[in-house]
Nucleic acid binder design. Sequence first.
DNA 1: AAAATATGTCAACATGGCTGACGTAAAATC
DNA 2: GATTTTACGTCAGCCATGTTGACATATTTT
Lengths: 171, 171
Amino acid sequence: MADVKSLANPLFLREEDLRQGIELLFFAYRDFTAEPDAMLAQYGFGRAHHRVIYFVGRNPSMTVSELLDILKITKQSLSRVLSQLVDQGFVTQRPGPTDRRQRLLELTPQGTELERRLTESQRALFARAYRAAGAEAVDGFRKVLLGLINETDRARFGEPGAALKTESGRR
Amino acid sequence: MADVKSLANPLFLREEDLRQGIELLFFAYRDFTAEPDAMLAQYGFGRAHHRVIYFVGRNPSMTVSELLDILKITKQSLSRVLSQLVDQGFVTQRPGPTDRRQRLLELTPQGTELERRLTESQRALFARAYRAAGAEAVDGFRKVLLGLINETDRARFGEPGAALKTESGRR
DNA sequence: AAAATATGTCAACATGGCTGACGTAAAATC
DNA sequence: GATTTTACGTCAGCCATGTTGACATATTTT
């Protein structure tokens, strides 16, 4: 339905509109990373550690190459960060059951706890922004951000139209 | 400043919904910066140079401290990047007319041209995403991103942000 | 048996954050 | 008019995190 509308009612995009989008993304990302960065600094970790912890927590038993695909960095860059996390007991590695060359990654309880604390701050930020904007806006947010993401990774996200439910709608 | 809208239409936010937002932002930002980064590399510049060029182009005659406020980095970090841009003829500095301690920043024609090329790629990305999502979605995108941005900088964006109020100012 | 794959490691380098300390010119204040 | 504050700049060094290139090892695939 919304798809039809965009065809029926093509947008006139001013330079100004596009720059606004660029800036919104810049400022939002800057503020989105500020709090976790400060937390991580207390552990001597950086943003890169957060990304690893986040995606391993999200995707238990993932392989190193899956992680590399997500982060789009070199294995040497990942290696440094990952081995720090393993050495300090936040992440474990175990050989893959069918392919024993793989090292499947998991969070330790300590890693899970750190992940929770880091992400909690970002979840709270999103919860506030989502609630302030409303369900419809959230849906639009998703559509636009999906359009910014390359097609391959877009597939990581499910049905593009899956809408948020409101309290009333849910119960 | 009670949040009337969230009371009228409360969202039920699942952990999953919030994580999806986090990931959308991560992937979108990653892909949003990829193309300009590649261009900049040809000049021996990095993302930091882009940010300076972008905001100076956007805000001609801005002062160094205004730029620092936007970027939220230290003057020493900025200094390195900025002096490279000045030395290589992309940015000029001139004393402020009333306050001669200030150094007002401008793009040179060369700087303007580089800015145009860099931002063009991002504008195209946004144009595509905006058109695919439709006007209504763009509006929602704006609302949500504004809600992620701290209150002070939210004021940089026009009226749509006026509707967004948070329980308590963060940061 | 050979080749490709998954992963790791070492070494070297660049970017771009950071802190601390110090300097200078101009504006604002007492 | 002297002092303080402000708006910069700069030097030096540290750290996190990206890069490339070369090489190693175990395992799977051909």
